[in-house]
């Protein structure tokens, strides 16, 4: 690799709260880590768990989900839906060997530009510490055999 590795983060922000807050952070000329590509969605409830896995599969090292605070969803309950999916998805990715810190959910209202700044910085820092998420690709090629030195893998503490 010629360039030094930088964390790649995909951020799904709802248009009514967190995206507006990111806009506010920009207008207020706040500086924060430039590692996230923001994808604007209408509601955090629109974020299909497939989007998150697709982001990881296509090279994201971390995924951030931003929605309105509980009770503040523009569509009443979309953020609760996001919370329920996120809770289960986090368990699923952990069992699939992805550190849970790589997926984060934050409630950020339209006026909290400073919170966008703080969360973006923290997330970049967390991912930097974890290092790149290296998925083995492509599976369509026969994978090299593991010959030696491997530690048996466990799923959430259970042995094979």
């Amino acid at each position: 690799m010629s360039k030094e590795w930088e964390p790649r983060i995909v951020a799904f922000f709802c248009t009514w709260c967190t995206y507006t807050a990111a806009d506010l952070a920009g207008i207020s000329r706040m500086t924060y880590a430039p590692n996230a590509r923001i994808v604007r969605v209408m509601c955090s409830g629109r974020i299909d768990p497939q989007f998150v896995l697709k982001a990881f599969a296509d090279g994201a090292d971390g995924v951030l989900i931003g929605g309105c605070h509980p009770g503040d969803c523009h569509y009443q309950a979309g953020n609760y839906k996001a919370l329920r999916r996120y809770t289960l998805l986090k368990r699923l990715i952990t069992e699939l060997g992805i550190e849970p810190e790589r997926l984060r959910l934050e409630w950020i209202s339209a006026s909290e530009g400073d919170r966008v700044q703080k969360v973006m910085n923290e997330m970049a820092e967390t991912i930097r510490k974890l290092g790149p998420l290296r998925l083995e690709r492509p599976l369509s090629q026969p994978l090299p055999d593991t010959e030696r030195g491997a530690v048996p893998l466990t799923v959430s503490g259970r042995g094979l």
Partner: peptide, 22 residues
């Protein structure tokens, strides 16, 4: 699981040998 977006459990780098560098 193999057909899923992740295909398999992600292995920590220490447990991988045999040139899984990509």
């Amino acid at each position: 699981l193999p057909a899923s977006l992740l295909h398999r459990r992600v292995r920590s780098r220490q447990t991988r040998t045999g040139g899984a560098s990509a």
